[in-house]
C-alpha cells in the first residue's frame, strides 16, 4: 500500500532523502553481459562452490545485504583471488570487486548494495588456479505494505 510518490519501483527508491534516479526499465543488458564476459575472459565458470547469500525480498532497495563466500584453504598456492558482484539491472551493473590474499584466511565478505528493481544478482569468483565459479540469486524489490 502506499501513496502517490511511493507506488512505482522507480519511486520506491525515493526514501530518506537519498534519491536514486535508476530507471524502471532494464538498464542495458549489453553492459552486464560485457562485464561478465570481461571477467570470465574465455574461461567456463562452474556453478558450484560460490555462496551468494541475499534476502529473497529487499527490505529497502537502497540497502540490500549481501554475503559472499567460497570454501577455500586460502593457502599461498590455493586461494580465491577475487569475487565480483553484478546487479545486471542497475545502470552500472558491476557493484564491486572484492580482492583476497592468502592472509585473508577465509574467502568471505559482506556488504550492502543498492538495487534499482527486482533482478537476479550474479557473483563470480576467480581462483588462484584460474578456475572461475559463478552463482546467482533473485532479489525481489517490492512496494510492500499490507502485511499482517
Amino acid at each position: 500500500m502506499g501513496e502517490t510518490g511511493q507506488i512505482s519501483r522507480r519511486n520506491l527508491l525515493v526514501t530518506g532523502g537519498a534519491l536514486l534516479a535508476f530507471g524502471p526499465t532494464r538498464a542495458d543488458a549489453a553492459a552486464s553481459d560485457a562485464e561478465i564476459t570481461r571477467i570470465l575472459a574465455g574461461r567456463t565458470a562452474k556453478v558450484t562452490g560460490l555462496t551468494l547469500d541475499v534476502p529473497s525480498i529487499a527490505e529497502n532497495g537502497l540497502v540490500v545485504p549481501v554475503n559472499l563466500s567460497v570454501a577455500s584453504p586460502m593457502t599461498a598456492t590455493d586461494y580465491v583471488r577475487a569475487i565480483h558482484l553484478i546487479a545486471p539491472e542497475n545502470p552500472i551493473p558491476l557493484v564491486a570487486s572484492f580482492r583476497f590474499t592468502p592472509a585473508s584466511g577465509r574467502a568471505a565478505t559482506s556488504m550492502r548494495m543498492r538495487l534499482a528493481q527486482t533482478q537476479t544478482i550474479v557473483a563470480i569468483a576467480e581462483l588462484s588456479n584460474n578456475d572461475v565459479l559463478i552463482a546467482q540469486a533473485e532479489v525481489k524489490v517490492t512496494i510492500g505494505g499490507c502485511g499482517g
Binding site: 540497502v63 540490500v64 551493473p93 558491476l94 557493484v95 564491486a96 580482492r99 565478505t109 556488504m111
Partner: peptide, 10 residues
C-alpha cells in the same frame, strides 16, 4: 583484503 566499489554500493 581490498574492494573496488562502484556507485551501486550503499
Amino acid at each position: 583484503f581490498s574492494a573496488d566499489w562502484n556507485p551501486s554500493v550503499s
